[in-house]
């Protein structure tokens, strides 16, 4: 790859300190390290992966609104947290977590439990208690 062909497709790195570095060949044929804002191909790959997760989340959101599951299941999916990982991070068993997916059980959870979930999922307790309208 030539230095002038190094992609500069800024998308997900916008407003962050993260950048790619790549090695490319200059006019004289010498290799140099070049900073890159990202590559549309990699952005596309991330797009489709996030779209897939969002579709899954939308289905869960509908079930939350229908009263079939708790917001916890939605926020777990939204934050890439499968039940086994959520179990590893919270210390709650997978069985307990699945119980908390029940809207009735979830609505009776104490503050400490809710705090734990919110902390692990990087959201506030208020956010945890509902899904976006």
């Amino acid at each position: 790859m030539k230095v002038e062909d190094v992609p500069q497709d800024l998308k997900y790195f916008k407003d962050t300190v993260m950048r790619d570095v790549t090695y490319a060949v200059d006019k004289d044929g010498n290799y140099k390290s070049v900073m890159s804002d990202g590559w549309s191909v990699k952005n596309d790959a991330l797009d489709i992966t996030l779209e897939d997760i969002n579709e899954e989340c939308e289905a869960i959101r509908q079930r939350v609104l229908a009263g079939e599951t708790s917001p916890l299941e939605y926020h777990a999916a939204k934050n890439f947290m499968a039940v086994d990982l959520l179990s590893d991070y919270t210390g709650f068993s997978k069985r307990t977590i699945r119980k908390h997916f029940d809207p009735n059980t979830f609505s009776q959870l104490d503050g400490e439990t809710l705090n734990k979930y919110a902390d692990v999922l990087r959201i506030t307790v208020e956010e945890l208690k509902s899904v976006p309208k």
Binding site: Y23, A24, V25, S33, K42, D44, T49, D52
Partner: peptide
């Protein structure tokens, strides 16, 4: 999704498959 994973999952930030080949090119030079 499997294609997307090849492109991004393992080298989430940093070098993808091509990148390591270029790095080796820089090394050989």
């Amino acid at each position: 999704l499997n294609l997307a994973q090849i492109i991004r999952m393992l080298e989430e930030i940093g070098t993808g498959g091509a990148g390591f080949r270029y790095m080796f090119g820089a090394f050989l030079q």
